[in-house]
């Protein structure tokens, strides 16, 4: 059994497919805040049209399990590296180190984000997630807002750089030219998604 091989490939797939989808869903739904309270609450209500049991199954099967696996096996991978962009300052080596640094930040950010909003507020307190709740959370504490922006930036970079390395790992891009093209395109996507994040996060402050 080539356990190492299958675990590594599963890690790659879980990150790109499951967590990528989760990231896009988050950016899409949250960008509704640009349209104000009504638009965001409408988008949240749309999500609630999914029957609760199926929703929970999706949350566990398509988010929870892949996230835990990607996170725990990812920590093992990150510990295998001795980041050296100081000595070898090539672009890809910086991306390699950033991939691991954003990962460490995301481990703590996601424990806080999921633990507070999903498990504590929604799960235990039964709080209804709404525009007003998020606005009071962010405007009430700009540090929280900053950490959320950083968390989003980290996740977006980690995902976009992950597209580049996914293509290498799966042998999709072989030569330097195709690898360069994918890497430029994914960094453009990274910049675009970061701008969208900045826009919807600042809208909470502009529409008080």
């Amino acid at each position: 059994m080539n356990t190492a091989f299958y675990l590594r490939r599963l890690h790659s797939l879980a990150g790109l497919v499951c967590l990528g989808a989760v990231l896009f869903e988050h950016i899409f739904t949250n960008s509704m805040a640009l349209g104000g309270a009504k638009a965001l609450d409408g988008a949240l209500a749309m999500m609630e049209l999914i029957p609760p049991l199926i929703f929970l199954a999706l949350e566990i099967g398509a988010i929870g399990v892949p996230l835990l696996f990607h996170g725990i096996y990812g920590i093992y991978i990150a510990l295998e590296a001795n980041n050296n962009p100081g000595r070898f300052g090539y672009t890809r080596n910086w991306c390699f180190a950033l991939q691991r640094w954003t990962a460490w930040f995301l481990v703590f950010f996601l424990i806080w984000h999921i633990g507070y909003l999903r498990i504590f507020e929604k799960g235990m307190n039964g709080t209804h997630i709404s525009y007003d709740l998020l606005q009071s959370l962010f405007v009430g504490s700009p540090i929280t807002a900053c950490l959320y922006v950083l968390g989003m930036f980290a996740a977006i970079f980690h995902f976009c750089n992950g597209i580049t390395t996914f293509c290498m790992t799966w042998g999709i891009t072989k030569g330097p030219r195709s690898q360069k093209v994918v890497s430029v395109l994914s960094m453009l996507l990274c910049a675009g998604l970061c701008l969208v994040t900045l826009a919807f996060m600042s809208s909470y402050f502009l529409m008080v």
């Binding site: 080539n2 356990t3 190492a4 091989f5 590594r8 490939r9 991978i77 295998e80 590296a81 050296n84 070898f88 090539y90 890809r92 080596n93 390699f96 180190a97 991939q99 580049t164 390395t165 290498m168 790992t169 330097p176």
Partner: peptide
């Protein structure tokens, strides 16, 4: 495909 084989490559591309 074993532990320590090609799956441990992290695509830092320093080698090239």
């Amino acid at each position: 495909m074993q532990k320590g084989g090609i799956t441990s490559c992290g695509n830092s591309q320093n080698c090239v």
